[in-house]
């Protein structure tokens, strides 16, 4: 098996009394899109800052691309690309000048820079606007340019910190498609932080879930579904009461149960049978019209993990 591209051992970082990252150990294999999921303030951005060597850990260590984050941070930054929380584009400069700047920073020769600008801007449908000041571009176009900038110097690893945060669903989907096609074409490893679970589900081969600085789980989305339960059911009918809900929640095979507009949504642990649960409802006086079973989404897994942690 090949060396992991990111290797983290017991990494912690505190800001005063606040522990932003708490004993994180993780390995990211090469060539995948790795999703780092967590709610706001979970420690995702701090992790990226630590992996880029912009911050020093309070405890623990990490190696990125084989380089130590404390002693060889410059080498990590030289071989990786980053799109941080903000696009960080120079709005008074043109799109091509923004890319040219980063080509110069990474010491690419002028002909290679020009060819790369044309290649990336054409691929992202931004070529016609290349000479316009970036300040006049739409938000989606700016974010695409920022992705192109992170990939410009052919890095083997890129860090993307919530690239679609604050976008409307159409713009987010468009950016996601561009991102997926670029990543596949370039063969780059991506460390993607997000709290958008649809995004993680569509893009990531592996995900880790973090909360309050602590790693909660890691694996492929399918593995996580299986590990956290993975099955969900929807029961349509009438006469569901709070008492029935309470009885359902007491059952060992039920991870989560809720009522939405006369639809009873149940999340199951493992491959549980539905029959005993339906019988319980009918005996308690409910009228069951339909029972549907399905696979839990990553969002269900995430919510279950968050719920388990808070209880």
């Amino acid at each position: 098996m090949s060396e992991p591209i990111i290797h983290i051992e017991h990494l912690s970082r505190s800001f005063g009394t606040v522990k932003a990252l708490d004993d994180l150990s993780l390995e990211v294999p090469a060539g995948v899109v790795f999703g780092f999921l967590g709610p706001n303030g979970a420690g995702k951005t701090t992790t990226i800052h630590l992996l880029l060597g912009l911050l020093s850990p309070t405890q623990g260590q990490a190696r990125v691309l084989g380089f130590d984050t404390c002693t060889q941070a410059a080498a990590i930054r030289a071989h990786s690309g980053a799109l941080l929380e903000f696009a960080g584009l120079y709005e008074r400069m043109s799109g091509e000048d923004n890319l040219d700047l980063y080509g110069r920073i990474y010491q690419m020769p002028a002909p290679a820079r020009q060819a790369r600008i044309k290649e990336l801007l054409t691929h992202l449908d931004l070529w016609e606007r290349r000479r316009d000041q970036v300040g006049t571009w739409s938000r989606g176009m700016k974010q695409k340019l920022a992705v192109a900038r992170a990939l410009f110097h052919h890095p083997s690893l890129i860090f993307l910190d919530e690239p679609t945060a604050g976008f409307d669903p159409i713009a987010a989907a468009s950016l996601r498609n561009d991102l997926a096609s670029l990543v596949a074409r370039e063969g780059v490893t991506v460390f993607l932080t997000t709290h958008n679970l649809t995004e993680a589900e569509k893009l990531c081969a592996q995900v880790a879930v973090i909360r309050q600085g602590k790693l909660m789980t890691v694996g492929a989305p399918d593995e996580l579904r299986a590990r956290t339960g993975g099955q969900e059911a929807e029961i349509v009918g009438r006469g569901f009461t709070e008492q029935m809900l309470a009885s359902l929640r007491e059952r060992p095979e039920v991870a989560h149960a809720d009522l939405h507009n006369s639809h009873l949504l149940i999340q199951l642990r493992g491959e549980s049978e539905m029959g005993p649960l339906v019988r319980l409802l009918v005996l308690a006086g409910a009228e069951v019209e339909e029972v549907r079973r399905g696979k839990a989404s990553l969002e269900d897994v995430f919510l279950t993990l968050m719920e388990e942690e808070s209880t």
């Binding site: 930054r77 941080l84 960080g88």
Partner: peptide, 14 residues
Amino acid sequence: ERHTLETLLASRIS
């Protein structure tokens, strides 16, 4: 203020 410094700091430039 414009958040361009953070991106510059994440690059290889000294």
